[in-house]
C-alpha cells in the first residue's frame, strides 16, 4: 500500500505542559483514522500540526518532529472561512476560483436551495455543510476533519460517514476527531489521551 502520511516524533508543548510527546503516525492511501481523547488532550493541536499550521515542538532530547504528506491536504474545523455577508454561492465561488472547478454535490449536501442566502443567515448545521462543500471543492487527497459533526442533524451525521467512506474508497485518507459517536468502518483509532507525558 502506498503511504499517504508519515509523521515522526511529533510533540506539542503548551506552556510547561506536554500535550503529547514523540507521537508517530502513518496512514496508507484509503485509510481513515479516528482520533479520540478527552477535552484538552491536544486533538485540535495535532490536527493543526498535521495541516502545517502549527510547528511541532522540539522534544526534551531536542528532536524536531517531521511530517510528510503525499498529495494535498484539506481541513475542516469550526471556522467555515466563508464571507458572512456574501450569498453562499458567491462565497463558495471565491474558493472555486482558487482551487479550480471540482464536482461538489450541492444537492447531496443539502445546500443547493441555500446558494442565494447570505452565509450569516445560515444555521450552525447549514454553515457546517457549506464548509464541507468548500473543503470538498479543494479536491484534496487527504482530509482533516476536526469535529465535523458539531451542529449537524442525524441525516448530516450519516452524510459525513458516507462521504468519508467514499473518499477513502477512492484512495483518499481522512483523519477525524469527534466527541459524538461516528461510524467509520475499517478506521484505525488513536487515543491521544494516552500519549501525554
Amino acid at each position: 500500500m502506498q503511504s499517504a502520511l508519515t509523521a515522526k516524533a511529533l510533540s506539542c508543548r503548551r506552556g510547561d505542559r506536554w500535550l503529547f510527546e514523540a507521537l508517530d503516525l502513518s496512514l496508507d492511501a484509503g485509510e481513515a483514522l479516528y482520533l479520540t481523547g478527552p477535552n484538552g488532550a491536544g486533538k485540535t493541536s495535532l490536527m493543526r500540526m498535521l495541516a502545517g499550521l502549527l510547528r511541532p515542538s522540539p522534544t526534551l532530547q531536542g528532536m524536531m518532529g517531521t511530517i510528510a504528506w503525499s498529495g494535498s491536504v484539506a481541513m475542516l474545523d469550526e471556522r467555515p472561512a466563508l464571507d458572512m455577508a456574501l450569498p453562499l454561492g458567491e462565497a463558495l465561488a471565491f474558493w472555486r476560483d482558487i482551487d479550480g472547478a471540482q464536482d461538489v454535490p450541492f444537492e447531496r449536501l443539502g445546500i443547493a436551495p441555500l446558494l442565494d442566502v447570505p452565509v450569516r443567515y445560515l444555521s450552525t448545521g447549514q454553515k457546517k455543510r457549506a464548509a464541507l462543500a468548500r473543503m470538498m471543492g479543494q479536491g484534496a487527497r487527504n482530509w482533516l476533519l476536526d469535529e465535523p459533526l458539531n451542529g449537524l442533524d442525524v441525516a448530516g451525521v450519516a452524510l459525513i460517514e458516507e462521504l468519508v467512506a467514499e473518499h477513502c474508497a477512492r484512495g483518499g485518507t481522512a483523519i477525524v476527531t469527534s466527541h459524538q459517536p461516528i461510524r467509520l468502518p475499517g478506521a484505525r483509532q488513536l487515543d491521544i489521551g494516552t500519549q501525554a507525558l
Binding site: 491536504v73 474545523d77 472561512a81
Partner: peptide, 12 residues
C-alpha cells in the same frame, strides 16, 4: 484570521 481564511490559504 478569525474566520479561518489565512489558515485555508496556508493549506493551499
Amino acid at each position: 484570521i478569525e474566520a479561518g481564511f489565512f489558515d485555508q490559504w496556508a493549506l493551499r
